[in-house]
Amino acid sequence: MVDVAFQGGTISVAEQVDRAKVLGRLRLGDAAFRHLTRAAAVTVLVILGGIIVSLVYGSLPAIRAFGLTFLIDETWNPVTEKFGAIAPIYGTVMTSLIAMLIAVPVGLFIALFLTELCPMWLRRPIGIAIELLAGIPSIIFGIWGLFVFAPFLQQYVQPFLIAVFGHVPVLSTLFEGPPYGIGIMTAGLILAIMVLPFITSISRDVFEAVPPVLKEAAYGLGCTTWEVVRYVVLPFTRVGVIGGVMLGLGRALGETMAVTFVIGNAHRIAGSIMAPGTTISATIANEFTEAVEDIYTSSLIELGLILFVITFIVLAFARLMLMRLNARVGA
């Protein structure tokens, strides 16, 4: 019978010193690795801090020059060096609004299809296809939007909208003017296609988190599928769905390339959603390399700061909502 502990007791002094050395080295390596990983984790926070500090620092000249009027001024004139952000802010909000109006219901219905109706063997392929749509880079949406989607809208959809809504009060302002093809509406529609997969995949995940027993109970009472969804699934997952929608909204607000191609880059607020406009991200993408004067650059960086603050709030809210749902499912 070999006793390991006993053997350990009979090793020579030299071996013991050796062993202490090895153990010491291991302990040192352990502590070093621990601190290394901790430093890496802290780096994530440093990156966020760096983004905020550098954006604030970069926009200081513009903040000093324009103050709060920057937020409400519509002028954007590089020649006279007068800058105001309200037109891009309006464009960002408007395009995202159009995108969410379309993508939220469609995304929820797809998630509903995937969790309740779709046969098992088809769920994975459709889920993967939707996620592939999410993986297509935004520049592809941009080039497609510019060469395919915008001309299509210009030729077929927009004249139709003008003809139908042109004589309806209120709506006629919304669909006014010549069909340019490019503009707020086109950008909003492309954003809708882009955020659709995000909303779908998160809604599907939260729908799947509903305990089956709740749904089975409702089916047992004789509910139709729609009633189960309406009165069991949606109430249970409400916070998660809101979180998913906000996450999609965060994407839509910050999306750059797809919008830049089709927005038209016009610094004004038009009543019609078919008119060209601009968004914060498109303005930065289009003009940053052309900006030579410091105040111009600084104004663009301040635009970036505004965008970051808006998306930060939206995304933080989204995460809090999703965390609340997780806590509930876990409990």
Partner: peptide, 20 residues
């Protein structure tokens, strides 16, 4: 929490950050 926000932060803002 912060990492999840960075995950969906607008990439153009990251460009501005590195520019600065």
């Amino acid at each position: 929490f912060i990492n999840d926000i960075l995950l969906s932060a607008p990439s153009i803002v990251i460009g501005l950050f590195v520019y600065e």
